[in-house]
Amino acid sequence: MLKRLCARAFPRALWVYHANTGACNGCDIEVIDVLTPYYDAERFGIRLVGSPRHADVILVTGPVTRQVAPALRRLLEAVPAPKLVFAVGSCACGGGAWFDSYSVLGGADRVIPVDYYVPGCPPRPEAILHGVALALGLVEKKVAGEALRQETIEELAMGVSRFGGGRDATP
């Protein structure tokens, strides 16, 4: 749904406003890397702009410190709809190693709705490109939630595995 909406709303170019909300600069350097001719996100129409009023996308890096959270909310309001929010880096996706620190809110999605997550600390430039291509509908998503389970001792004794996987049925 979201993908189709994106394809319709953003047929050509995504202009990106980069918001550092307390990142260590690792992710920011990778974002700049992606814009160099070697990785060249500009071939997808990605461009950094200097004002949120010109942007389609807000790219958030960092775990959102308490200080910056109100500014981030205001920033999102300044972006004209339709808009997308990208969380780049483990910090922006879930708070990183600071997820329970007193001074951070622990991830961009605690403050504003996030459309695409690109985990990594920092994510490789290729991983960011993959996220961009995913948003543009050029590649498929490659991760999914996993639910794994081991068999109980009764199931092992019966020698059947109702769940597939888990431990080997022969003790």
Binding site: Y117, H130, A147
Partner: peptide, 17 residues
Amino acid sequence: QFETATDRPQDMVIRLE
């Protein structure tokens, strides 16, 4: 694996019983 971009936070959870 580094191509971990996703649009759903539930995709980034592994549950193991």
